[in-house]
Amino acid sequence: MPLSYKVLVSGASLSGSAASVYTALALTSATISAVSVNNPTGAPVTFELYLGSAATNNTKIVTKSIPAGKSVPVSEVVGHKIEAGMQLFALGAGMFLNISGSEYVQ
């Protein structure tokens, strides 16, 4: 199957604990092309994104403070590859996450 451009994560509601927001299925790989985080709360919130089989310090790819009431691009993660079986985990209490990218199914 060819390459397809798609929304990988759409408006995922985040909590204060890292949770899986995307999993590359068997025979599928993906590339992140855009990430944005919306913080509708009244205070800055820390956003963290992890890439791997678990959310650990070894798999963290970004930590960023998102200002209150703002939507912010997270360009630091653009270009990261997600291999079959790998997951993206995210945390950010009260925030919402959107990720666009491409998937290639073998």
Rank of each mutant, 00 (worst) to 15 (best):
T59D: 07
G16V: 06
K81Y: 10
N39S: 06
G101M: 07
S20G: 10
F47G: 02
G52P: 04
L97C: 02
S10L: 15
E103H: 01
V74R: 02
I61H: 06
T28W: 03
T46G: 05
L25S: 14
K64Y: 07
I82C: 12
Y5M: 14
M1K: 15
T28D: 08
L27T: 12
T59I: 09
Q87R: 15
I66F: 09
A34Y: 13
S10E: 15
L25F: 05
M95R: 08
L97Y: 01
L27P: 00
V78E: 10
V7W: 11
A24M: 09
A12M: 11
L8E: 01
T31S: 14
M86S: 08
N98D: 11
L27E: 13
S102P: 04
L14I: 10
N38P: 00
I32V: 06
S13C: 08
I82S: 08
G92M: 05
G52L: 00
L14M: 10
P44M: 05
N39V: 02
L14F: 12
N58R: 10
G69I: 01
I82D: 06
K81D: 05
V35Q: 02
S10Y: 15
G92V: 00
S71P: 00
V45C: 06
L14G: 11
T46E: 11
A34P: 04
I32F: 03
L97A: 00
T31A: 13
T31E: 13
G11K: 15
N98E: 03
S53V: 11
F47R: 06
A93I: 04
P67D: 07
G85K: 04
G52W: 00
L25D: 12
M95P: 07
P2R: 15
I32D: 00
L8A: 00
S29C: 11
P67N: 07
V7I: 15
